[in-house]
Write a protein that binds this DNA or RNA. Sequence first.
DNA 1: GACCAGGCACATC
DNA 2: GATGTGCATGGT
Length: 216
Amino acid sequence: MKSVTEKRLLRIYNRMYDAYGPQDWWPADSAFEVMLGAILTQNTSWHNVEKAIKNIKDAGLLNVRKLACVPLNRLKKLIKPSGFYNIKALRLKNFMGFLKKMYGYSLNKMRKVETDILRNELLSISGIGKETADSILLYAFERSVFVIDAYTKRILYRHGLVGKDAEYDRVQGIFTENLKRDTGLYNEFHALIVRTAKEKCKSRAPDCKTCPLNGV
DNA sequence: GACCAGGCACATC
DNA sequence: GATGTGCATGGT
């Protein structure tokens, strides 16, 4: 028996899927690249993040052990195009220090850890908040964790499912308490929200005619 | 030239 | 607990 909210969420999902199709997220070739991107994209357009990741790739450093050895100042230069490079370089260092300390740089060991424990570990790292942690859990480790970002809050607010300043956990609960735990669905749903938001209407104007969510 | 982008930590009240 | 602020590049 589907709840009213579940039906609404699925209607939103289907509209976006029909308009844009599968998004094939996360745009990365490895779990480590997902993690780098998740930190670099904090309050930053993906376009700029791609430049930073390309710099790291071109330098042959897209590898946990290699990148961990790069001096801070060189790391700053490599990620400069993604903005906030001073603070983000420190965050990457914090994160890689965590990987070394907890897992000896082994993402396979990390992969064996239970989701709630892993989430708490990630949140304990300075520079990794809920959205970044959940992005890593969903897109690097295929866990059924719903990622909430500014777009998601905006869309749920626009559709009257949460209040204007609803907290992260509250917004996340709307999805996880009403949808079945399905990693593939969560993956595609969040990706489609970002895609929809990037289109012209930005999912903002209530009277937008081109938005696939208009009238849902 | 203003505004925005796939947040987060920290200071202050 | 809530609100405000710094962090910075590059595209529109």
